[in-house]
Amino acid sequence: MGAVPVKFYQVGSFAVGNRLLDPDLASVQSDPERANSLTSGHRACQGCGEALGARYALDAIMRATKGQMIAVNATGCLEVFSTPYPETSWRLPWLHSLFGNAPAVATGVAAAMHAKGRDDIRVVGQGGDGGTVDIGFACLSGMFERNDDVLYICYDNQAYMNTGVQRSGATPPAARTATTQTVGPEPGNVFGQGKDVPRIAMAHEIPYVATATVADLRDLEAKATRAMEFRGARYLHVLVPCPLGWGSASCDTIKVARLATQSGLFPVFEAVNGEVTSSTKIRHQVPVEEYLKLQSRYAHLFRPTRRDDVIKKLQAMADRNIERYGLLEPELAPAVPAAMSNEPVEVA
């Protein structure tokens, strides 16, 4: 399961923090002493979802590992905006090698730690969707197959943003990119299978696979933290909207991610040893259109003529996710301590 719901306080489960929350239940991001693994001064665009997702995930892991971690980064926006000489925004041991080899480099770091008897130092590989689902995929699969002791995090913004928004294997159908332009009878990216790396990761039967978004911090932190409870290969796929590439307002980054989940287009779930063990239920279901219309990469679905045929196909994708992951099924009552239940409690 994802985050333990904290329903008691007015915003307990959803906002970053709450002044009344028991410190043990507080999110990492609400902590003024959080690691800020990725600190200020980085050159990410305004409203960058990836900068946010990376700090969320890595700060949680920094807490979970008590700072004993090393990160390996694929080439891409995250790398470029964080480490242009002479400045780096990282505050943890960090290595960038190449675009397509981050999982293998991470394996090397993990192997080194194991050889040195320093298994307490944990290793995280990370990259964007291009570096993960496309060019780095062989290394990723190899790392999974060997069950190397690495958590790999994909910050998925659904295209090659660093090079100017070209299509990747994670670009959704109908989306406009610089290489799937809105011309011809089927504008935007083609409809196909896409590359569903979380499911491919599950097929490797690695110990832990999860998806998350920047719209649900507690869920993301819970998954990043839980991932560190396992040894072996783990995979975390985080949806991180890109205002530049998606054509969304910089202030809407979290909103867009939220609508991706609430429409069902991006299922949030976790899987242990290859089996889905929980999914995050949709709270307020919205039609996919609510999600699409905030992004100019889908503008051609609404103007000059409305493409109901395409919107319907996208809705069908969302519906399939809802069905497959039970996103509208009632939440099973989690066994939570009284202090976290929906029942009123006394404040000490």
């Binding site: 008691f8 200020s40 980085h42």
Partner: peptide, 27 residues
């Protein structure tokens, strides 16, 4: 207490830490 905590504190910061958390620039 429960009822008081249902207040959404409309228009007045109640220190939910959201701004602190959601800033991509730690600003």
């Amino acid at each position: 207490l429960y009822e008081a905590r249902r207040c959404m504190s409309c228009g007045n910061c109640f220190e939910c830490d959201n701004c602190f958390g959601v800033c991509p620039d730690n600003a």
